[in-house]
Structure formats: structure tokens, C-alpha cells
Amino acid sequence: MKRSLGEKIFTVVNTIIMVLICIVSVYPYLNQLALSFNDGMDAISGGITIFPREFTFENYRTVFSDPSFLSAAKISVLRVICSTVLSLLVTYAAAYGLTRKGLPYRKQLTLFLMLPGYIPAGTIPIYINMKNLHLINTFWVYILPGLFAFYNMVIIRSYLQELPPEMEESAKIDGANDLIIMFRIIFPMTLPVVACVALWLSVGAWNDWTTTLTYITDRDLHTLQYLMMRLIKEAELANSMTMQQAMSKGQEVKAKVTGDTVKAATLIVTTLPILMVYPFLQKYFIKGINIGAVKG
């Protein structure tokens, strides 16, 4: 088909705008990456783009030798593993149970599990509840509240409903019980949706910092994201409040400036795991929201 001049112009303009959008989307991150590899004192004059001017590993060395960073990294990894595995187990089991043929009270049970999504109790009642359960300042506050997620259950359930029922029936005739059927036969067939939900859960757990902000004061239980939040907000405070005084004392200026590049290195390290799983994320997340959009 021949394309008119107008269409050709349209294609060119569209491509240019798309390229601009791409640049805007990655530039701040690349800038941060360059900053994290740049000498702290040198960065004070600004003007760093996406290439470091005075290359150094010093910022990363500082980050990885900081005991509070190492402790936070340990907590973050531990919490991602625990909450992903346990939440997947609880949510999958519920989805599986609810799709059993002829299950009585299915509707009532589903409604019971769905309702809290529409009527959340609110921040303070939830906080008081955690307090009464003695979960404040424990590692479990990261894991237990998220054990069951209705939306994830819906995604798994819709996948289970699509499976051919014959598989299960023949297994039952062979004398397998429910647990064996679930683990040996059904579970392997649902691996794509399991991977999708697992990624979902782990990214959510990794990126969360408000749980720490709300429930944790114990330094040993801080996560990487929370540490980064403190770093960013404290650096900003130092930046705005004491800039004037700091200007007169060279020492403090140095401390502040090195802080900026170390902050950049922390941000890069904290977001690196997301970057590494991103190719999978893109594939599965998008599949996931499309399932959600159709079956919602």
C-alpha cells in the first residue's frame, strides 16, 4: 500500500517523540550510575552527564564496607525469600482449594476473602492490631500480613480453571490423594502463573519500605530500601539546613559531597536486583495484568 506524505511525516514525528520518551525514561538512572562511579569531591562542581568524569570504585567500597548496609541487605534478601515462598504457598493452596469440583460454600468463602480489599480497616487500627499481636519490631511483621493476597489468588485460580479436568480424574482413579495431585500433577502444569506471581511478590517485598517506617525501630531489622530512604532524606536535610554553615567549613562540605556519590552508589546497588530480573518481569508482569484485566 502506498503511503501518503502526511503518513510519512507522522511516522517520523512519532519516532522522534518515542526516542525522546526513551531518553527521558532512562536518563536520570544513567546519570545516577555515572555519579556512583565518580569521585565525590569532583562531583561537587556538577555537570556530570551519563559518563563519570573522575572514575572511581571508592563509593561502592564505602557502601559495601558499611556494617549497617550489610545488615540491611541481609534482612532484605531474607524477607524477599520468606515472604515470596510462604505467601505463594498460602495463596496457591487457597486457589487450589477453591477450584475443587462441587466445593460447598465456595461463594461464601470467596466473598469472605475478597471483602477486606474493599473495606480496609485503616492505618491506625492495623497498627494497633500489630501491636496487640506483639509483631512490632519483629521480623515477622514483614512476612505474616502479606501471606494471603486476594488478587494473586484470582490470577492463580483463573489459570487453574483452564486446566483440563481429565488429568486430575485419571490420577484420582490411580489412587493419588489430594496433596499428591496438587504437588505432582497440577503444580508443574501451573508453573508459568506461579513464576508470574512469585516475581510479583518478590518485587513488592524488595521495594517496600513503608512497613519498616511504620512498624520497625530496631536498627537490626532495617531493610535496604528503608536505609536508602533515610540516606536520601537525611542528605536532603543536611543539604538544605546546614549548607550555609557547611560552606564556611571545608570539612563538612567534603562530608556532604562524598555523601552524594555514596548515596548514588547505594541507590544503584538497591535497584540492581530489579534491573537483573527486569527481562523476566516485563514478560510476566504484562501477562499478569492482562489476565487480571480479562478475568478481574
Binding site: 477453591l98 477486606p116 492490631n129
Partner: peptide, 27 residues
């Protein structure tokens, strides 16, 4: 008859009761 299925839903139910329904009382 549906013991297996109900047992599988049970952890989700307990979790919903403790972390979603219990705090509603705090309203």
C-alpha cells in the same frame, strides 16, 4: 468429604481473619 480442600483454604482464612478482619474492630 472436602476435608482436603478446606484444609488448603484454611491458612488463607486464618490470615484474613487475623490481619484483615481483626483490625476492623479497631475502627
Amino acid at each position: 468429604k472436602y476435608k482436603g480442600a478446606y484444609l488448603m483454604i484454611l491458612p488463607a482464612l486464618i490470615s484474613a481473619i487475623i490481619f484483615s478482619y481483626l483490625p476492623m474492630y479497631g475502627i
